[in-house]
Simulated scan of single mutants.
Amino acid sequence: MRLRLVARADDENLPGFEPGAHVDIMTPSGLIRQYSLCGSADDTSAYEVCIKHDNATSRGGSASLCTQVSPGMELQISSPRNAFTLPEARRYSLVAGGIGITPLLPMLLRLQRNNAEWELHYYTREPEQAPFADMLRNSSYQEHVHFRRSLREGYPDCLNIPSPDTAIMLCGPDGFMNAVSSHAVAAGWRAEQIHTEYFRPAESSHSLMDQPFEVVLARSGQTIRVQAGQSIASALLAAGIEIDLACEQGMCGACIVPLLAGVGDHRDVVLTQEEQGGHIALCCSRSRTPSLTLDL
């Protein structure tokens, strides 16, 4: 289902966003879910999101949007956030698996506007009925777009030979993304050339019986104990410390704060390896050292 969201008549205009951004939506079920903005980043008169209604895998949020939302209904959303930005590059290879097409659409619209060199490889079970297929077969885009049903039909040809000035923008189910990333790295691509967006946190093998640790708040000097099986966010909230929270799954980046000392056990899918040295997601990550010092 495709939703078009506009500001209420008495509200200010919607904030601008860059390709790759997403918003949190308070669904009718009361659950907060993240959805990529799939409309043009150059048109902020409305936000567009596309929601896959899958009863088999839905945890309640998407299903409630698809079955309970009606035209004119008011929904509470966050400002756009972006953990999947377009890097500077000479050319771009966009690779989408299924509904992973959504954050890539604003990218290709921006790249086409800028006369950049790009191509899209769109893997979908039914190419004829795929979301946005009609638009992508438009004469303006069709020479850049390649449809395939699955990776069994082959990986994108462009990934077979590494190109140092190309950025790979990859989005889709975890297994699909892992397979494409592994194929690219095996072919000689550098890991930092592969940019990804996950729709849910990667499966974790971490035990729920993690060791307790302490969090030191640098600004006040306060020390807070984080118990085994408890998140840093939960411990802080219980101590009366106000923090930003949204997805609580390590996907959105709302709760990321500067990490001043200690070694984090990072379990989010937002921070890059480089960023992990100086930041941590409070909702899901823990500590590899007896204490962490946060800029709070």
Rank of each mutant, 00 (worst) to 15 (best):
G253S: 14
C284G: 05
A167T: 03
T289C: 13
R148H: 14
A184K: 01
D295P: 08
A167E: 02
R200W: 08
I32H: 02
E88S: 12
S70P: 00
A261M: 09
G154S: 07
L208M: 06
Y92F: 15
R286M: 02
E192C: 13
P19G: 05
Q142V: 05
L236C: 11
I256V: 15
G30H: 15
A83H: 10
Y122P: 01
E214M: 13
T57V: 10
S29C: 13
H279W: 09
D54R: 07
Q211F: 10
H22T: 01
C247S: 02
R125Y: 07
L108V: 05
R110S: 09
L292P: 05
E74C: 14
E197W: 04
M169S: 02
V6P: 03
H53I: 01
V69R: 04
I51W: 07
V226P: 03
G172T: 03
V69I: 11
E153V: 00
Y47M: 01
G188M: 11
C284Q: 09
T67N: 15
A89C: 06
I232C: 01
H206G: 00
G16A: 15
T44Q: 12
T196P: 00
Y123F: 14
P162R: 08
A233C: 08
V145W: 01
I101V: 10
Y122C: 07
E248I: 01
A281R: 03
R225K: 13
A96H: 05
M107G: 02
R148C: 03
G98P: 06
L296Q: 13
C38K: 00
G240D: 09
Q34A: 06
R81C: 03
R2Y: 05
V145H: 04
L170T: 00
P19Y: 14
L151K: 06
Y47S: 01
W118E: 04
A254I: 00
T102Y: 10
R149H: 06
A133M: 03
T85C: 09
D11M: 14
V215Q: 12
G39R: 02
G97S: 08
G264S: 14
P173N: 11
E18S: 12
M135L: 15
T27P: 02
V145R: 02
I161Q: 12
R200M: 08
F84Y: 10
I25K: 06
L282Q: 09
A116V: 02
R225E: 13
G278E: 14
E117G: 02
V270D: 01
